[in-house]
């Protein structure tokens, strides 16, 4: 056991959260079971693995892909992912000609039902400003190459609609089924800051 394994004191944030939780419980404003349910929801049920299943199905089922691009909300609900910031979904497709990138310039709106809670950088002022003003620079910093001829479309989810990118299916995946394909799909590829990599 190294000294790194010895737990130190809780961080200031953790202590504050514990104090708030104690107060809410003591005053009878929330029940422990409700806290456990919320944590389970956001840790285990709402997350990018849901969106990955949607993407993998679209890659393997052309009729589903058509429905997804026509009416994202209904097609995603078919897979059982609805409500909680997924009530109004538009899915935009990345192709060789068009690359889509999603941002919320006003705050941090994000499709929780399919992608989970937004990453910290998505909520940061620099990302929100630069995804609008210099999206190619942002992609470059994420190590994402798109051609000068590629049309770049940024989607600002500044209102009630949540956007999700249908990334391009990578090469060398012809033999994979939907389940194996879903393993390749990342959260960032569904925001549009990166592409889905081919399997090793």
């Amino acid at each position: 056991m190294s000294s790194n394994d010895i737990p130190g004191p809780d961080s200031e944030t953790a202590l504050r959260v514990k104090a708030l939780e104690s107060l809410l419980l003591e005053k009878g404003l929330i029940e422990t079971s409700a806290i456990d349910e919320l944590i389970d929801m956001f840790e285990n049920r709402l997350g990018p693995w849901n969106g990955a299943k949607v993407v993998a199905r679209a890659w393997t089922d052309p009729d589903y892909k058509d429905r997804l691009l026509q009416n994202g909300t209904a097609a995603i609900a078919e897979m059982g992912f609805e409500a909680v910031q997924g009530e109004e979904m538009v899915v935009v497709e990345n192709t060789a000609e068009v690359h889509n990138l999603v941002v919320c310039t006003l705050c941090s709106c994000f499709p929780w039902a399919t992608l989970g809670l937004p990453p910290v950088w998505y909520k940061s002022a620099p990302f929100r400003a630069r995804a609008a003003r210099d999206p190619r620079g942002v992609l470059d910093e994420f190590g994402t190459q798109i051609g000068a001829d590629t049309e770049l479309r940024v989607w600002d989810s500044n209102a009630e609609v949540r956007y999700m990118v249908l990334p391009e299916r990578p090469v060398r995946t012809e033999g994979l089924n939907a389940e194996a394909l879903a393993e390749l799909v990342t959260r960032d590829s569904m925001i549009g800051v990166s592409k889905v990599a081919s399997p090793d």
């Binding site: 009878g28 404003l29 929330i30 029940e31 079971s33 409700a34 349910e37 919320l38 929801m41 049920r45 609805e82 409500a83 909680v84 910031q85 009530e87």
Partner: peptide, 15 residues
């Protein structure tokens, strides 16, 4: 009080 039922309705209730 925010109980289990309230939280579960969050997940199903269209917002």
């Amino acid at each position: 009080t925010v109980d289990l039922e309230v939280v579960r309705s969050l997940y199903k209730l269209p917002g």
